[in-house]
Design a binder for these strands. Structure first.
Length: 867
DNA sequence: GTTGTCACG
DNA sequence: ACGTACGTGACAACC
């Protein structure tokens, strides 16, 4: 077989890597995420492909940035030109230090250079192109293969001529340019034929072969409008084809000797150190010195499950016994994944995969090996790596088995490393961090481990991970399994009662409006209020008139209908979300509601709750409180107890900012909002009235959120000038808070992240964005996250302490819910006083701050009474 | 699938 | 001057 020449499209891959990797920043504030991702991929490619020659091409034409290319990255931020432009020189510098040839030629793009090699490189080389640019598929031929990175940079699809034909209805790679000629490409400014998309283009080219042939045969093409479009855009089509054709005559050195792989230069190591790429140098050194790469990147191995990994089924007891006895000998961590099925209280394992010695060992339902697995799972000396440990704990609890020795949960680790991501499924994490992955199996888990461990160390997250989050997963499993008991009869009666009221309001609304309409449709309501009734338009949304509460409240009085709608809104919200919505989530077997606590969702470290969300059960209004009456102690218990922190976030702020006045307020046990009012309005504490206190309370909230005069004005319905005055007065008095806010934003700007008291990090790439809005948002986030996040850390510690205290005291009472600053427990009459005292103490001692942490206990026969 | 609205901390 | 409070999840309507 011919030696391989790896030609890499550096420009497109760095674009891709920018999105695929964490927003890394060095201590000096240099963005390195994309370069790091690129290097990771490179090292993997070198190991897998083992090329003899290597070159990396970069664009050097007027179009350096092609952010449009990322149109498909919905919801994700596009890189700014300045952030991107930092990545290219950095990558070039690094590649040069590694003695890797970097090619860029004035006036040409990377794909032109690559195209030139594809056509003109000496025939003794097999060429492998690596790119994120689909256009380059046109270069495929018998000796040219293309590794195309689909999403991110790790999901690679390997194309040869056959694979291309399979994806493109049998077309040849050269016909890609004909396709483009018809369909165009907005990201490349290729017009194509307007109105002809990928589908039509593919059909036409399949039938006629080339753009020219299509144009010759317009008469035979069916569809009048299509005919016209083609007829009117002949020139555009031909021009587009020309534009889509990669230029293959760039003056580059075709002497392969120049590209042969060499050892890295002495500059590589210090540079990598400067960039804080801790283990990259070593990995490159091993590879460049010849490695034993496990994957053959071409052929079956990419993008297919379990490509090269052998799966052995453990079917019989004998096989299980033998395998787990062997596993027993191992000292190191073993990766396993579990698939669970069924509903509470009967969740069980349906399949388990264990990675060992390069193979995956699998247990399925009906296997005789399960008991040996459970034995292994319960052995705390057998260290295990897994993902979604909470589900595993739940399954074990249902099966009356024990899970111990789980020392890593990749989901949680990945969340701590990048808490802003949207998914931490093993598949997603594997695709993000592993160049060659298996779509998320136990082998990927094992492969991820060293990377994740390194990152946890680099980011100083280990303590948080092992002492807080991992144990918490177990506690959350217990809480979910416990669930909470609803009073079904009460639920039904309130549901009916409210339905009657809603119907009455709908009839009234129809009378008042003079026509029938859907009160729940903001669109219909907008038309009615602002067009038919001619009420003033106060606010607009992206798509039409706003009809939210603040708008309706301002309109109240100008038409009787408004009050009806407000009342209707309130009732239907409660009715559909908390009454009708709750009923199907009552577990028929346990007759309890089992929420799901999400541990890897929020960017700040808080938990979230879903199916149902029990963290937003109404409490603020009288009618809302009735819904809390539905939640009652279950069989065997007598009380619901709630214990909530008083002003945690402001206490955290007082501690972190070390602000003199705020510390004083809490140390003297003052009403903190009243004190703020006294300071802001410049009156003695005794003269603070309720309106002043309300406003000061809003100021305090605003501070925690990263205040703006506009936001405060809106909240209090006062003028912007007045709000600005409050803020000015606040900062004049609370100078420590002001300094804290400035310092925090500066820290974020310099380090690229903010952290909580317990080291939880959040990276804020936008903190240096040139866009004012994005930057401002990042600045407010920088202020809020350490406060909200520290409070979240504190209650997580408190939960673990409470759990420990309850178990030490051997009581049956248990934690059911966490609502950010509140714990809800189910308590036995005989344990009531003891539990109240234990819980209060555990919560108040969860962290030691410069001010006391106080928690208030209350109990009742339902959740509404615990306030 | 996205948008508007609104429930909670 | 820029346009704005921080963090969530669920529902109904509309596309």
């Amino acid at each position: 077989m011919a030696d391989k020449f790896l030609v890499i499209d550096g420009s497109s891959l760095i674009h891709r890597a920018f999105f695929a990797l964490p927003p890394l920043m060095t201590k000096q504030g240099v963005h390195t995420g994309a370069v790091y991702g690129f290097c990771n991929m490179l090292v993997k490619l070198l190991g897998d492909v083992k090329p003899k020659w290597l070159a990396v091409a970069f664009d050097k034409s007027r179009k350096t940035f092609r952010t449009e290319m990322f149109a498909d990255y919905k919801g994700q931020r596009k890189p700014t030109p300045s952030e991107l432009s930092e990545q290219f020189p950095l990558a070039r510098r690094l590649l040069e230090a590694m003695n890797i040839t970097v090619l860029e030629t004035d006036g040409y793009e990377a794909d032109d250079i690559i195209g030139t090699f594809a056509v003109h490189a000496p025939q003794n080389a097999e060429i492998i192109i690596v790119t994120g640019d689909k256009d380059e598929l046109q270069l495929l031929d018998d000796r040219v293969k293309v590794y195309f990175t689909k999403r991110g940079i790790s999901d690679i699809k390997a194309y040869d001529v056959a694979a291309f034909a399979a994806d493109y209805e049998g077309l040849s790679p050269k016909q890609l340019i004909d396709l483009k000629g018809l369909m165009g490409d907005s990201s490349d400014n290729i017009p194509g034929v307007p109105g002809v998309g990928p589908k039509t283009a593919l059909k036409l080219i399949c039938e006629y072969g080339t753009v020219e042939k299509v144009l010759e045969n317009i008469a035979q093409i069916s569809g009048k409008s299509l005919k016209e479009k083609l007829e009117n855009n002949k020139d555009a089509a031909l021009l587009s084809k020309k534009l889509a054709t990669i230029f293959t005559e760039v003056p580059v050195d075709l002497d392969l000797d120049k590209y042969e792989l060499k050892a890295m230069s002495d500059e590589a190591r210090p540079l990598m150190q400067e960039l804080e790429f801790r283990n990259l140098h070593e990995r490159f050194q091993t590879i460049l010195g010849g490695s034993d790469g496990t994957f053959d990147l071409f052929g079956e191995s990419i993008g297919q499950e379990n490509a090269n990994i052998e799966i052995a089924l453990l079917e019989t007891a004998e096989q299980g016994k033998e395998f787990f006895a062997l596993l027993q000998q191992k000292q190191e961590k073993v990766a396993f994944t579990a698939v669970c099925g069924g509903e509470l209280p009967k969740i069980h394992f349906t399949a388990v995969e264990i990675f060992n010695d390069g193979k995956i060992y699998k247990l399925q339902e009906g296997s005789g090996a399960w008991n040996f697995f459970y034995e292994w799972l319960s052995d705390y000396k057998q260290l295990k790596v897994t993902c979604d440990s909470k589900e595993i704990y739940k399954a074990c609890m249902c099966l009356n088995k024990k899970a111990d020795g789980i020392v890593d949960d990749i989901d949680i680790a990945a969340y701590l490393i990048e808490p802003g991501r949207s998914s931490y499924s093993l598949k997603a994490v594997a695709e993000r961090y592993l160049a060659a992955n298996n779509g998320g199996n136990a082998a990927d888990l094992q492969a991820l481990l060293p990377l994740i461990e390194q990152k946890l160390r680099d980011y100083e997250l280990y303590k948080l991970y092992t002492e807080m989050e991992l144990p918490l997963a177990y506690l959350l499993a217990k809480m979910e399994l416990a669930g909470i008991k609803p009073d079904v009869k009460l639920l039904e009666s309130i549901t009916k009662e409210m339905a009657v009221q809603i119907t009455a309001l709908e009839i009234l609304a129809e009378e008042q409006a003079g026509e029938k309409f859907n009160l729940k449709s903001p669109k219909q309501l907008g038309v009615l209020l602002f067009e038919k009734l001619g009420l003033p338009i106060i606010k607009k949304t992206k798509t039409g008139y706003s009809t939210d509460v603040s708008v309706l409240e301002q309109l109240e009085g100008s038409h009787p209908l408004i009050t009806t709608i407000l009342e209707h809104r309130k009732l239907t919200k409660l009715h559909s979300t908390y009454l009708e919505g709750l009923r199907p989530l009552i577990n028929p077997a346990t007759e309890r509601i089992h929420t799901h606590f999400q541990q890897t969702v929020t960017a700040t470290g808080r938990l979230s709750s879903t199916d149902p969300n029990l963290q937003n059960i109404p409490v603020r209004t009288e009618i809302g409180k009735r819904i809390r009456e539905i939640f009652i102690p279950g069989t065997g218990y007598d009380w619901l107890m709630s214990c909530d922190y008083s002003q945690v976030e402001l206490r955290v702020l007082a501690h972190m900012a070390q602000d003199k006045l705020l510390l004083e307020s809490f140390l003297n046990g003052q009403d903190v909002h009243a004190r703020t009012a006294a300071e802001v309005f410049g009156v003695p504490l005794e003269q603070v009235d309720s309106m002043m206190r309300t406003r000061a309370k809003a100021v305090n909230f605003g501070i925690v959120y990263g205040i703006s005069d506009f936001g405060l004005a809106k909240q209090l319905d006062i003028s912007r000038g007045e709000a600005a005055e409050y803020i000015k007065n606040y900062f004049a008095r609370y100078t420590g808070v002001k300094k804290y806010m400035d310092d925090t934003v500066n820290h974020a700007r310099e380090q690229g992240y903010v952290a909580t008291m317990f080291g939880r990090r959040r990276y804020l790439p936008d903190i240096r964005h040139s866009n004012f809005n994005l930057r401002s948002f990042a600045e407010r986030t920088a202020i809020n996250t350490p406060i909200q996040g520290t409070a979240a850390d504190i209650i997580k510690i408190a939960m673990l302490k409470v759990e420990q205290a309850l178990s030490d005291a051997k009581v049956k009472s248990r934690i059911l819910l966490q609502v950010h600053d509140e714990l809800v427990l189910e308590v036995m009459e005989t344990e009531k006083e003891l539990v109240a005292q234990l819980v209060k103490k555990a919560m108040e001692s969860a962290a030691s701050l410069s001010v006391p942490l106080t928690a208030d206990v209350a109990w009742g026969k339902n959740w509404a009474q615990t306030k």
